[in-house]
């Protein structure tokens, strides 16, 4: 079949089937939320931030006031974690903003999207995994300061060494487990999308390397 025949069918089909949308319909569409991947990721990230702020505020207030303020250190740990989360949020939001250049050429937009999305996922994976040992070390230090530091006897020292070793082994185990769980989760969420984008990009590049 001649490509010119296809062209004629294409032009005729488009002439017959193009329907003009009314101005009102178009304006209504502008009020709708974007359903694109990046827009949804931004919304989810904002929701995550809100949840952290609300829940951490509650927990912090509780530990400041409960038990006559004897567990104030726990509240400070939560404040530190909330600050770390704000930095985490800022970095992720920055990557999301840089992820798309909708008016750029298709190839450069895809290249940028793949690069930024991979950076975003790497950061997600590292931050999500590191949270486990950081949190456990913070609680360990806090516990040491409160209970073990003053007057350690030899017997206490022996048993505490064993407990510490066990605690750190559990910490390593949990960190490794979190790494794999996060990796699997991220692959479920974005793996297919990245593979699709990469295959389009590879197709765009394949002749360029041969030419």
């Amino acid at each position: 079949m001649e490509i010119e025949t296809l062209k004629e069918i294409w032009i005729a089909t488009n002439k017959e089937e193009s329907q003009a949308s009314s101005d009102r319909e178009i304006l209504e569409m502008l009020h709708a939320k974007s359903n694109g991947l990046i827009a949804r990721m931004k919304r989810n990230l904002l929701l995550e931030l809100m949840l952290v702020i609300v829940s951490f505020s509650g927990v912090t207030l509780y530990y400041f006031t409960a038990f006559n303020g004897r567990l104030r250190q726990v509240a400070w740990v939560y404040i530190l974690l909330a600050l770390a989360f704000v930095i985490y949020y800022y970095h992720k939001n920055k990557l999301l903003k840089e992820m798309q250049c909708i008016t750029c050429r298709v190839r450069s937009n895809l290249q940028m999207q793949v690069r930024k999305l991979e950076q975003y996922l790497r950061f997600y994976l590292f931050a999500g995994t590191l949270m486990v040992p950081i949190l456990m070390i913070l609680f360990f230090v806090m516990f040491m300061v409160r209970h073990w530091w003053p007057g350690l006897s030899q017997m206490h020292l022996n048993s505490s060494l064993f407990a510490t070793l066990a605690y750190f082994l559990i910490m390593i185990g949990l960190t490794v487990l979190t790494w794999f769980v996060n990796k699997w989760y991220l692959n479920c969420l974005y793996g297919c999308h990245i593979r699709n984008l990469k295959s389009v990009l590879e197709e765009m590049n394949e002749e360029e390397t041969e030419l």
């Binding site: 694109g36 991947l37 798309q100 008016t103």
Partner: peptide, 16 residues
């Protein structure tokens, strides 16, 4: 065309 194609190709995941 750039906007339309960028949007269509970037959203492959959801539509598949």
């Amino acid at each position: 065309y750039r906007i339309a194609l960028n949007t269509a190709i970037s959203n492959l995941r959801k539509r598949q």
